[in-house]
Amino acid sequence: MQVKAIVFDLDGTLLDTLDDLWLSVNYTMDKFGFPHRDRREVRGFLGSGVRVLVEKSLPEDKKDMTDECLSVFKAYYDVHKDDNTRPYDGVIDMLKAVRAAGLKSAIVSNKYDAAVQQLKNITFNGLVDFAVGEGNGIKTKPAPDGVLLALKNLGVSKDEAVYVGDSEVDLKTAENSGLKCVAVTWGFRDRDFLIECGAKNVIDATCELLPLIQKGELN
């Protein structure tokens, strides 16, 4: 069946959010007198939402403070979420090409929904048809809830959509949702890691996505 829609992950796929998340983590660590996390550590913690990010960033004997630290993290990140955050090179042109090809698009993220909507409106206004993040009864990925809601809003079936993401969480999300997946290497995980996790369709540049989908040969 012909692909009619693409469902995108946000962080690490469309937006390079690493620096703002990293700085927000270390602001939170400072507030509680905990050691900083380096940028590479935080990169490895990403993919399962900000609660998991904060929990993994805490010292092993301070995990019981996750809720308290999460509140501080969110308050800071809400103000600074677009200080350094930018679309990856070629993403805007890719989304324009997707729209020009007559395909619908959605964002499904493990970031809390308020931040997802704000970043979508700031960066992708008019280029993405629907977006949803964690909250309002939507389970975080790899649960299929967000993807299924996106498909419903786009008016397409599982067979008519492709999922695009940058992590092992995204690969599992696509599997759980019944969608074929394209993994990207410009985000928070490397090519070798993605292949080890079972990625069958891997691209290294945004310009590769639409031609790959239009060939109709996704595994």
Rank of each mutant, 00 (worst) to 15 (best):
V108D: 01
N110K: 07
Y77N: 05
V72Y: 13
D83P: 10
G90C: 06
V42E: 01
D78S: 08
S57A: 03
V91Y: 00
A101F: 02
E41I: 10
L46W: 00
R37Y: 06
E41C: 01
R51G: 02
D61E: 04
S109W: 06
A75P: 02
S48V: 05
R40Y: 13
K31L: 15
R39D: 05
K104C: 00
G102F: 07
G33M: 09
K104E: 01
M65N: 06
I92R: 04
K104Y: 02
I92A: 07
V116M: 08
V79F: 13
S105Y: 11
K96P: 05
N125C: 13
R39V: 08
R99H: 05
R86M: 03
Q117L: 15
H36P: 05
V52D: 02
D93V: 13
S71L: 14
S57E: 02
S48C: 00
A106W: 14
I122Q: 12
D38F: 11
L103W: 05
D78P: 05
A75D: 14
D64W: 15
T123I: 15
V128T: 15
F32M: 10
A115K: 14
D83N: 07
M94L: 14
F34S: 04
F34D: 10
A115R: 12
M65Y: 05
Y76M: 06
E68K: 13
T123R: 15
L95F: 07
Y88T: 07
S71P: 04
L70F: 08
L95T: 10
P35Y: 02
L127P: 09
V108L: 05
S57N: 00
A114C: 11
